[in-house]
Write a protein that binds this DNA or RNA. Structure first.
Lengths: 131, 131
DNA sequence: ATAAACCCTGTAGGGACTACAGAGTCAAGG
DNA sequence: CCTTGACTCTGTAGTCCCTACAGGGTTTAT
């Protein structure tokens, strides 16, 4: 498939696909005789992975390193494991924080839908000095 | 405390603090006689909240709106509820996405753990991630 | 055959920072 | 005191991550 179709299928901006290629986050695809990029499912999957990772707050460098797990040019299995563990920890921390946020918001909705305003303390609950 | 100290305590770039003030994400702090910004713990907590929120993938606008729940600028209880519900949904989506990512990484660590094999099964696992 | 709808490249714009230049402030040591 | 160094102020310019043209070639459909 060509760039526009890949864009449509993934919801990614077509220009962004080109940009990701430029910064070596996406590999250079094969070209048709007339120079059009030709993508397949592996490109699509990789792009979806990147998009979701970005939504979740991973940096481009994070994603490059995560994807090196896949590309693994001369990366040993031990290193792969280490890298994955680092990301696993950060993912779990994100989940924990979001769960706290969820509970505060849930309480907010509950108490607000009833009578008058309590002091919803989003920040207090969530962001005392920590970590 | 002054800007540099707040920066050091939170790990935020000192210039970024000024930037957040400019875009009304952080409030203008009091100034000393000579014009230096003076921050207290509430500023620190708010900044931590913002920083973490960014890491969790919230946009600046998300954070402004989320913080309006704290600031409560003449917002009615009904609106607070509506706003909280919107954010609650997006928080839950983030949690779901991260959980998927967590399971992928967990499997990765498991299937990879130990030796130096060239053919890790993690490629399939990682690329199976979809929404 | 010719418009519409794509694709190509390069470049310029916008949002969110980040760094720098030139000037003022402050605490400490000589 | 005076100086020196670390810090702050403002404004502006640069970077990173996209996103949107402009000017051209290609494919598809009528």
């Amino acid at each position: 498939m060509k760039r526009g179709q890949l864009a449509k299928r993934t919801g990614c901006n077509a220009e962004t696909i080109r940009y990701y290629e430029k910064i070596d986050l996406m590999p250079e695809p094969l070209r048709s005789a007339s120079g059009y990029r030709q993508y397949d499912e592996t490109h699509e999957q990789r792009l979806r992975f990147v998009m979701r990772g970005r939504e979740l707050g991973f940096t481009i460098e994070d994603l490059k390193s995560l994807l090196s797990l896949v590309d693994r040019n001369a990366v040993s299995c031990g290193e792969v494991e280490k890298l994955a563990k680092v990301h696993l920890r950060s993912v779990r921390e994100k989940i924990d924080d979001l769960k706290q946020m969820e509970s505060v918001l849930r309480d907010t909705v509950r108490s607000c839908s009833g009578k008058d305003v309590p002091e919803c303390a989003l920040i207090d609950t969530l962001f005392g000095v920590r970590r």
